[in-house]
Design a protein around this nucleic acid. Structure first.
Lengths: 336, 336
DNA sequence: CTGTTAGCGCATTCAG
DNA sequence: CTGAATGCGCTAACAG
């Protein structure tokens, strides 16, 4: 107890008070102080509890939750594992997620995996691996591997690489895609191009299959299939290629950012954002599609519901069977 | 050591091996195991070190860095304190920051303060308060308060509310604003409107003063001053108001998002994004301004340099005097 | 170079 | 209801 400072009576005040300091000041044992300071109801006399609380207050005591975790086996920390956080869709998701997790009394440690090949390097700094739970957006590993990495029972897979044992939440994109394609068909669309993202993602693969099935069901012919990486730039590039050939009646993109790139490259087809010849469909239902310049018809799920589902898993309110699925709907805008 | 599983020889394998398990398996003491597993060079015989490393490998041992921190007093954790992460500018900043911090071998706890009045609620969950350092973007508190909250010596203030004691990095917006206003003046701009963000931020107040000074220096008359909250929606609203009155020659916004809102509302003035009568200037130099639809002239600093400065402070490479300042430059685009 | 001991801050036995 | 003792996983200080 390294004192720097004194209280009103001149007694030394430790700068980093521990529960021992509090106990001493309150004239009780450490155990009593611990019980008094506990969130739960523990046997302490009202009088001593008051003394302890006051002492803690005066000392500015803040329990070292890391030390506490040694005995309780719970750190009140959850890891959020992401590839990166620079997609436009991340803004709509991570902020409410962060708020919701913190509301449960836990804090979030953000683990950015980056390119999957560097995973090894961050394996060494193991702080994250003793968290209470891991929420995995990154598709760097499958459920079994992630479970091994995080010695936690609670590994929540959101990347589609779950197995029957692992809690998982995934959007059910069937309805949304079916609605979008049906909408296109109703507008007389007969040919379409598909602009996709990284093919290594299992979620993306499923999405592509759903598009193929829906297009086939409506007799829409797929004239081109271009691969991007979800980014605006890759959408712009896809638009460039599409501009070379006869335009399809509709362009479906598996991200809104790519649709924005396509839209900008093919502006002539969308005067004022409104579709004339070619119809444009995005994916994610970004809040950015409410901006006037990018009124892109899109497919998306309810972010609040998604976050709520994640929290439910985290708190044990949801118990499977896994995966939990979340309905995805079509949201028409000017381009489609 | 709760065994579930066996190794090749049938010996029980603990699921959550501690250093004791490793030591036992290697046939050495805990201290030797600890030294062998240490990152630094500690006295261990080569032979025993090899045995320990192999045992650790076989057991899948991962040190509990939280327990380690109890004695080393260093958790390898830094807290990043933000109001929220839903501004477009956040995407450009937090991802490289996260990557850079992790590169130093530390992990990041993201603390979202939200509206400042809820600070009390998250005060209780004290996990974050025993971190090695705190990087404070949120303007929820001044340097002295933050220092008290985080018992850390290392509180890096990025919100402008620093004091001489606290390490701080802030953009020097003087040059960028001067350049932008000079650019406008050179185009014959004589009247201007200013669209600002939250006036409670000291950085914002300084920014507004700089605009006033620069405008006055060039004899540009300020015809309107509107207050937004940095968001697209608030910019749209400001554009609405500006549409009611005779247009000023130029509109300066203290965020690109607001400029995007203004631009969309006043599209007629910017056919194809190019300025005709009114010139538009944003702030932040968002990567989004490289999208065709929002070619907004903007003011910003080098994000890489900013992150580098933050890391320099964190690692002790930068030692003051504080604050460190970062030059901000004007980046002309179609609107200005 | 090695092993033993002590202690980080805390919660939890277990006797009183 | 209380307090002394024990241990969580690990490393630092010490003696061999």
């Amino acid at each position: 107890m390294d004192g720097t400072g004194t209280d009103k009576l001149g007694a030394p005040l430790p700068t980093n008070p521990t529960i021992s300091d509090v106990a001493q000041r309150a004239g009780v044992s450490r155990a009593v102080a611990s019980r008094a300071l506990s969130d739960e109801q523990r046997p302490v006399s009202a009088e001593k509890k008051a003394r302890v609380l006051q002492a803690a207050q005066e000392l500015g005591f803040r329990p070292n939750l890391l030390a506490r975790s040694l005995t309780t086996k719970s750190v009140n920390l959850v890891a959020v594992v992401v590839n990166h956080i620079h997609d436009l869709s991340d803004l709509d998701l991570f902020d409410p997620l962060l708020a919701a997790v913190q509301n449960t009394g836990k804090q979030v440690i953000f683990v950015r995996v980056g390119s999957s090949d560097r995973v090894e390097s961050f394996l060494r700094t193991g702080v994250a691996y003793h968290v209470d739970a891991a929420i995995v957006f990154s598709d760097f590993a499958d459920a079994a591997t992630v479970r091994t990495l995080f010695r936690s029972e609670l590994v929540l897979m959101l990347n589609g690489r779950h197995d029957p044992e692992s809690p998982a939440v995934i959007p059910d994109e069937r309805v949304g895609i079916a609605e979008a394609v049906a909408h296109a068909a109703a507008q007389g669309v007969r040919t379409a191009a598909l602009v996709t993202g990284r093919p290594t993602s299992v979620l993306e693969q499923a999405r592509i299959r759903l598009y193929h099935a829906a297009l086939a069901a409506h007799g829409i012919r797929l004239t081109a299939s271009l691969q991007g990486d979800y980014s605006y730039a890759s959408g712009h590039k896809a638009g460039e290629e599409l501009a070379q050939a006869p335009r399809p009646d509709a362009i479906f993109c598996t991200s809104d950012a790519m649709a924005m790139g396509v839209l900008d490259r093919l502006r002539g087809d969308f005067p004022g954002g409104r579709a004339t010849t070619t119809r444009l469909y995005g994916f994610d239902n970004l809040s950015l599609t409410d901006f006037d310049a990018y009124p892109i018809s899109s497919i998306g799920f309810d972010k609040q519901a998604y976050v709520a589902a994640v929290i439910a898993v985290l708190t044990g309110a949801a118990t499977g069977p896994w995966p939990l699925t979340l309905p995805t709907r079509f949201h028409p805008r000017l381009t489609g």
